[in-house]
Design a protein around this nucleic acid. Structure first.
Length: 270
DNA sequence: ATGACAGTCTGGGACTGA
């Protein structure tokens, strides 16, 4: 079973590349982030024709996540428990960000066979101590609580948390650790929030099979110079992780006209 | 060498992203 995650940066702009990725890698499950479209704008008929079921969760312009699967998608969830919302502005009550109680389309869960999978687009954070940064940390914290609750209740559950984590976990995951604006993505708090998932028993399963970056900015010849980031990850619970047998980063997908700035990360399970 | 990233729409500039 081949599982992949990919921040596609607009599915409408890259439907041809999407279909090619599914075919080239013979994927069974693909989690997308930044689809940047409403469900009715998603290329559902093309994907159905290619043999996939689809569920998309998005608005017209920003964010948006989707799951594409050969096996049926069941028990769809459009947010995880306690997923925070975000409203622009500075809180007047001393809070660190305004949670309007409406989760953005950044998480989509489903049961595929015996695997519980989430496609996740973790908030960017924008700048250290920006309200969006605190929103990001709260998003990761509540996601961690959810994962911990699932695995505490069902230790043998196959659980996959995959997506664009917008965290640079180690200095090896960025070409220049001083290159990020105001040090965003690699603060101690962001890194601690990322590694906290390992404390729940999850393990990141792409790293042991594949080296290299998963994102290269469109600007400043970042891709030709291989100045990138590794911010797309596949966390798996013990029952799932033990079946991981191979993995790769599809670096070639970054080439040519019309590429996303992220590439697919793929792990195969026995 | 005088360009310089890409997506979307509330569009021809602003916003977001990383």
């Amino acid at each position: 079973m081949k599982l992949a995650t990919w921040n596609i940066n607009s599915v409408r702009a890259r439907t041809d590349r999407l279909l090619a990725v599914l075919e080239r890698h013979d994927l069974d499950i693909l989690a997308l982030q930044e689809i940047k479209c409403k469900p009715e704008q998603f290329p559902t008929s093309e994907l159905n024709a290619a043999g996939y079921e689809v569920v998309a969760h998005g608005i017209n312009q920003w964010n948006g996540v989707a799951l594409i699967s050969r096996l049926p998608l069941q028990e769809i969830e459009f947010s995880f428990p306690q997923q925070p919302g975000f409203q622009k502005g500075t809180p007047a009550d001393g809070a660190k960000f305004i949670d309007n109680g409406v989760p953005e389309p950044r998480a989509l869960g489903a049961k595929i066979g015996d695997i519980q999978i989430w496609s996740l687009y973790v908030p960017n954070g924008r700048a250290v101590n920006d309200p969006h940064y605190h929103y990001k940390l709260e998003f990761l914290h509540q996601l961690n609580n959810y994962a911990n609750n699932v695995l505490t209740a069902h230790p043998d559950q196959k659980l996959a948390l995959v997506g664009d984590w917008n965290v640079i976990p180690t200095d090896l995951d960025v070409w220049d650790k001083h290159a990020m604006p105001e040090g965003i993505y690699l603060t101690d708090a962001e890194r601690a929030a990322f590694f906290a998932f390992a404390e729940t028993g999850l393990s990141e399963v792409s790293t042991k099979f594949a080296q290299g970056y998963t994102f290269w900015d469109y600007q400043k010849l970042r891709f030709p110079k291989n100045e990138g980031l590794r911010i797309d990850y596949i966390y798996a619970s013990p029952a799932l992780a033990q079946n991981a047998i191979a993995g790769m980063i599809d670096r070639a997908e970054r080439k040519g006209q019309g590429a996303s700035d992220h590439v697919p990360v793929i792990v195969e399970f026995a």
